[in-house]
Design a protein around this nucleic acid. Structure first.
Lengths: 215, 215
DNA sequence: GCTCTATGGATTGTTGACAATACCTTCATT
DNA sequence: AATGAAGGTATTGTCAACAATCCATAGAGC
């Protein structure tokens, strides 16, 4: 049987996804005060599911909501992005360490194979930052899930990454340095393959620290 | 003027708080499938605000919701609590380091004064774990906010602490060891007062690690 | 006797209308 | 002229009814 992607998709989920991508991509300016009815007409929704989605978004810190006053997208600053990277540094360090201890051999092989395809992509589209960003996301995604720590993965994948992507869109901070990042990814994967959790943690922290300084 | 505690409190907020405390305190059993109408009659609400609150709770990982099938409280295990403590260890370590660098002298004085009152409370109610738990919460709360890292504080205070408290209620894991914890708190505060971020981080990590092993 | 299917009931998801609150405009007063 | 207050309007918060989906039970077929 197929994996049943027909997992019933409620309107509220749809609203949540639409809003989230709209916020992350910058279609909704920060500080912009938007009415609910306008959002409804914009995404073909009714206010019930929309409000549910707004609650979820607020809980995740992507927008703020004052009672009877409306909702507005969170404003961003470079300092806050820095703080976000500090959090990522420690949390992904932990994820890398646990991944080194817990990923299956098959997963590790997949991880390294993924890096090969990333390398080919970078070679093909020379300097195209887009593939690099996707590949970067993919790499960190696999390690987060590989940590076998449900809450950690949820925090990284569900909260932090969206925030980081939003900030990067807003501040137009392209990740740049594709080759260097790939090399660092390689070394991290190598450490994981050797089941050296301490080294994997150290390398991951340094990797994210370097990315932060690159901003 | 007073700080305006009359901050308008919407029904959805009320529902959110009620549900959250009910889940944390264990009034709603884990795995229990509860109907929306039952919840409404239980907390004197209507389904609109309730659904909004349910969305927020789901987003925070306190309950799971399958479309058209109902909601149920998350089931818990000792392993997951361990994982939670691992996350706390790294994140609160970071918080302690940043707090050492950023708290004002006044905040540090307040922090140490708080520890004095904790000590008196422990002496008075000998062995009473309740005050210790409250004091513990208070201490970590101050450090999280003192880190001047909004997202970090949000993650710790808004997500992790509720989860930890829920698990502790479920597994009836009283924190125990009040005197030892107080001493560790004292040393952490001392390191912060000396602006020694590295030491504060190290001590905090060890403190939480000890608490984890105590389970 | 066991399994698969179909129908009924109950619960969730959604919708539109109603009520309450905050913001903005206008007017009066200093 | 500037500031304050008061009212109107628009927007948000809330409610109750409608529609869609799933689970359980009962029945038939193998």
């Amino acid at each position: 049987m197929s994996e049943a992607a027909i997992q019933t998709y409620t309107r509220a989920d749809e609203a949540f996804d639409c809003l989230q991508t709209a916020i992350v991509k910058g279609d909704l300016a920060p500080g912009e005060k938007i009415g609910e009815v306008e959002l409804c007409s914009r995404f073909n929704l009714t206010r019930g599911p929309l409000r549910e989605a707004l609650g979820r978004l607020e809980s995740r810190g992507l927008l703020v909501r004052r009672p009877h006053a409306g909702v507005k997208v969170v404003s961003v600053s470079a300092e806050e992005l820095m703080e976000l990277y500090r959090i990522r540094e420690t949390m992904e360090g932990l994820a890398a360490r646990q991944a080194a201890e817990r990923m299956t051999d098959e997963e590790i092989a997949d991880l390294q194979a993924t890096l090969d395809t990333h390398e080919r992509m970078i070679e093909q589209a020379q300097g195209q930052a887009y593939y690099q960003a996707e590949g970067d996301y993919d790499f960190h995604h696999r390690i987060a899930t590989g940590s076998r720590n449900a809450k950690l993965a949820q925090m990284l994948l569900g909260d932090l990454y969206y925030m980081v992507r939003m900030y990067r869109y807003r501040l137009s901070t392209s990740s740049g340095r594709p080759h260097m990042a790939l090399g660092e990814h390689r070394r991290i994967a190598e450490a994981i393959a050797q089941r050296d959790g301490e080294l994997a943690e150290f390398l991951m922290k340094r990797h994210i620290n370097a990315a932060r300084r690159n901003i």
